[in-house]
Each structure stands twice: as C-alpha cells, then as structure tokens.
Design a protein around this nucleic acid. Structure first.
Length: 310
DNA sequence: AAAACCTTCAACCGCGAGTTC
DNA sequence: AGAACTCGCGGTTGAAGGTTT
C-alpha cells in the first residue's frame, strides 16, 4: 500500500533545506494548508503532502516551544503517560508548544531510562519485580472485602505500614477504572502505583515541606485536565472514614455552569450525577465510598469529557 | 588522532479511521 | 455500498553530532 502521493511522484526525501522551509512557511502563512496533498504543488516543493504536514507540525509551526523540556513538563509527561500510555498526541496536548513527536522522542531517549534506573517499568509504571517488596498478606479471596481494606492491604504492601490507627498520607492515589470491574467486587483492583510510592517517599524525606508545595505543585491535576483520574486521599488507617479531596476546583469552576453547582453530596446510586455535585471534600463511608470516586475517575479515553458516574 | 560506540531527534513508514466520490 | 483518497497516529529508522576508548 503505502502513500500514493509519495510513490507516484518523484519527491525529495530526507532533511529539509532552509529554502524548502521558507517556501512552505510562505505558502501556509498566506494560504493556509488546506488539503495537505495539494500543498507541495502549490508551494512549489518536490515533497509529498505528508512530508509537508509533518515538517509544518513538528518544526515550522510558529507556536512551537523549542528547547529542553522543563522538570515540570517531564513530570507532566510521566503523570499523563501513567494514565494514557503511549498516546503521544494526547500527552502532547497537555504541553503547550510541544509536539507528539517531540514528547515521544523525549520519552524514549530520556524518561524511559530514568524510570528504569528508578526501578520502575516504563510501560506500567509499576515497580519492576526485582524492586517490588512484597509484604504479602496471603489472601485475596475478598469478595466481601471493602475497597478500603483492599487499599489498605495494598498500601501495607507497598509502604510497609503496620496495622493500627496511625496517620498515613497517601498522595494521589490513582484510582482504578471500575468500568472494567464488577462494581460489587473489588478483589482485583490494580495495585497502588509506584509513582504514588515515590511521592510518599518524597514526603517522608521532606517532612517539613507541606504537601501542597511538594506534591501539588508538580501535579498535572493542578494544571488542568487529569483531575478525574486522581485524587489526594489523606487516610487514617484503622478508621472507617476515607476523606477524598479534590484539587480541581478552579478547573471545575470553569467547566460547570452556576446552576449545576451544588453543595449536596452525591447519591452513590445516582448514575448521572453532574460533576458539579462534587464539592472539594467529602467524608465517605469506607465501604462504597471509594467506589464512587473510582467510578467518577474511570474514563480514560478522554478524561475531560467523561464526567459522568459509571 | 581516529575508530568505535552512543545518543538524539527529524523524518519516514505502515496502518486505521474518516471522508469523498 | 464500496473504492479511492486523506489525515493523523505511533513505531521505527538513520543521519548527525557527541563521547569514549
């Protein structure tokens, strides 16, 4: 198969010369690109339309941000990749001025190695087997196990915490997609993500730095759109309450019309609660409560537009 | 100094989805 | 309805430059 525009015509390939760049820029800035397949002819280039499109998008577009990725951008890429996987174009949308190609290259040449060096699987973001310290509480036959206790079990395993009413902060617990689970069973919830573990360690090592500074400032949640996949959950282990706090008020304010805003708490049986029903903080009964936000956070295909309960 | 090796990243390729005819 | 075309995406390649031996 291949691209007929490339195979039919005699086209130049390889690196673009400054003259070609200039021709392409001049054409697009005066006429727009229109149909890419017609661009080469109209712009006087011996290239295929596809090559022109790529050159424009990845290199010539005026709104591109050049130069090295910042630490913040790197963090954002990792955060979003953890949720979306190798969907580079989606990830790039969270980084103004960056292209999917640029993000992909940066991931492959830099981030991937860093994660591996940290003992993390770059595909799953889980700890690599050799790094995973398991404090297995042997059973997982928990058809009647609460989400909370399962969460507790996972945390006990990853963070090596003991049972008992000690205060544990769980930064940004990534809640699993309940769409792929029977909502009545929680036995096979995925494990706590190692990135949460990293943040936990960071907090341990920097106890004087408030969470808001050490964690939130580097979170994509604060910036925009991934808010429905994560939450910060200060948890008092051994208690029956799980308080979930959302840090997306500003963003949500922009998206939700005033009439939808309400302070009433969601009914967990209501499957079409508008996102505006969420206030910044709820106390939930531990059994079902975490499932509510889980459901809320479950649609990963386009987190911005999937705000209904599952 | 030069060969070998490594890293980066621009560009290409193949494919699937959407659109047009 | 289906063939042809177009677009956009993710994986891969390879040239160029840098680093090590």
């Amino acid at each position: 198969m291949g691209h007929q525009c490339c195979s039919k015509q005699k086209v130049k390939r390889g690196l673009w010369s400054p003259e070609e760049d200039e021709k392409l820029i001049r054409h697009i800035t005066t006429h727009g690109h229109g149909s890419w397949s017609s661009v080469p002819k109209l712009a006087g280039l011996q290239r295929c339309g596809k090559s022109c499109r790529l050159r424009w998008i990845n290199y010539l577009r005026p709104d591109l941000k050049r130069g090295s990725f910042t630490a913040q951008e790197e963090r954002t890429i990792i955060d979003v990749h953890r949720i979306l996987g190798n969907r580079w174009s989606q990830i790039a949308k969270h980084l103004p001025g960056r292209t999917d190609n640029e993000v992909k290259n940066f991931w492959n040449s830099c981030i991937k190695k860093k994660l591996i060096a940290q003992g993390l699987d770059p595909n799953t973001h889980n700890l690599l087997p050799s790094h995973h310290q398991k404090k297995a509480s042997s059973s997982s036959n928990s058809s009647n196990t609460s989400t909370f206790s399962l969460l507790h079990k996972q945390l006990s395993s990853v963070f090596q915490i003991d049972d008992g009413p000690r205060e544990v902060k769980i930064p940004f617990v990534t809640l699993p997609s309940l769409s792929s689970y029977d909502s009545n069973t929680v036995a096979d919830l995925p494990p706590i993500q190692p990135y949460d573990y990293q943040k936990y360690l960071h907090m341990e090592q920097n106890p004087s730095i408030p969470i808001s500074d050490s964690i939130l400032s580097s979170s994509v949640i604060e910036e925009s759109c991934i808010w429905n996949t994560s939450a910060e959950a200060p948890v008092s282990m051994g208690h029956d309450e799980l308080q979930l706090q959302h840090y997306t008020d500003n963003y949500r304010e922009e998206r939700i019309s005033p009439e939808n805003k309400s302070t009433s708490e969601p009914n967990i049986n209501d499957h079409n609660i508008d996102a505006g029903m969420l206030s910044s903080s709820f106390d939930f009964e531990y059994m079902e409560s975490i499932q509510v936000p889980c459901g809320m956070f479950c649609n990963l295909s386009d987190p911005m537009d999937q705000l209904t309960w599952n």
